[in-house]
Amino acid sequence: MSEIIEAIFEALRLVLSLDADLIEISLRSLKITLSAVVIASVIGLPMGAWLAVYNFRGRRSFIVVLNALMGLPPVVVGLFVYLVFSRTGPLGVLGLLFTPTVMILAQVFILVPLIASIAHQVMRDLWREYADLLSSLDASLWQKIGTLLRDGRHGLLTASLAGFGRGIGEVGAIMIVGGNIDHATRVLTTAITLETSRGHFALALGLGLVLVGLSLLVNILVHLVAHIREVEE
């Protein structure tokens, strides 16, 4: 119990002291995950809408695979990306291993199936409502997808936020491809892992609280913005 209280004080001390390292690590966490979420949303949200609208042969299998990929262990994704970008790998010449760029890429791989899957569920419900009307108005496939994305945007926000939650707390993949290098690729989760292994539990828990706080903050901000927009409409 005392350790937890100590951790809370440690977290407060860290935050209030505006510890330079903490700020750097937190900002890097945010930057990497937000980038990954934006990229994965640009791919995953339209994919979800497309899956809801377009009835092609093999759609069912596609969705099954997508759902399976959602459960893909991040370490495995990390290992795969590592092998592709390692010096002897096919993209080794790019020299991206152990950089934030490749960490973003690994997260995109993890987040696309998740975001597309949730988006598909949201879009499927809306499509049930809209299908006859949009067909009647002779909308093209892309117009249908665009309409679903626009009118279902509040539900899609949930998909992206779920992606953010998954990304910001992810450690396995970015540890492998990022290497947890101080002042280069260290983020909140990998720092927590490191401090825990060093026996600095209070510091680790403190970082953990910052992580939770950041995650909450982003969620609250996004919902506030969405709410203001909704009221304005």
Binding site: E129, Y130, L133, S136, T147, D151
Partner: peptide, 8 residues
């Protein structure tokens, strides 16, 4: 349609 469908 018998039950009007309106866009959100």
């Amino acid at each position: 349609f018998q039950t009007p469908v309106l866009l959100r």
